[in-house]
Amino acid sequence: MDLAFLLQLIVTGVTTGAIYAAVAMGFVLVFRVTGILNFAQGELLMVGGMLIISFRGAGWPLIAAVPATIALVFLLGCAIYAFALGPAIKRGTNISLLLITLGLSQIMQGLAQIGWGSDPRYTPDFTPADRPLTLFNVSVTSQSIWIMGGVIVALGVTYVVLERTGIGRALRSSSIDPMMARLSGINVRLISLIAFGAAGALAAVGGLLLAPVIGMTYATGSLIGVKGIAAAVIGGFGSIPGAIVGGIALGLLESIASLISTGLQTGISLLAVVLVLLILPDGILGGRRVKTAVGV
């Protein structure tokens, strides 16, 4: 196997992995704050992708379409909590809450199919180029640079918000000790709502960056959602570095699996995730999770 080929695999893997990392971070945020595993996260990505396709189709420039997409999916994330999970959380069990998120994913898929049809929808690259950039015999498309850059910015913003702002401190404290967070004057319900919104925004970033690369359909989100969860699992379900490591590890795994069979890429990588779960339940970053999170 020559070096260029290997590098090509890595570039492909990291690009896909970046998308998974964004979705995974959303899962982690929501899970850490509310204890809910939101299976509708992938559908939020799909809606993000569909929205940017529609906005750009209507002639909006990126500078308007991107923030509008992120804002709308942020609100959709909030709505999921405000109207379904929030009212259910007090009496809910792990199982009932998870089924609610599954139900929401089905509703979103159905409505997307009704609103946007069943055929794949496309949108051009953000900066269309005649040919991909070539470095050391490795070709990198302009959109994959957008994807990697976009995800880095999104996770960077998430990091700064979590570490440096009052809302970030409130989010983290709610995930560590919800009762004490309330006793510190934090409205934990509002913080949960924000966590869902932020997860929506992260998914939207993933969706809008991915839209030019694939034909987006109502069903696109469900598989990517599962991959996002898988990435979160690999990363130990705890931190931003974990989500990044998990996402990229999964992306690379798929890249490698595609060597064996393109069709079996999903099956092979998901089986590998199950192996990780069986052998290293805390993810490949190991004990980090145990140290930082109480009750996760």
Binding site: A84, G103, S105, Q106, I107, G110
Partner: peptide, 10 residues
């Protein structure tokens, strides 16, 4: 069906 079954679950 997706919408109705999803709504029932929720």
């Amino acid at each position: 069906e997706l919408v109705i079954f999803g709504a029932i679950l929720v």
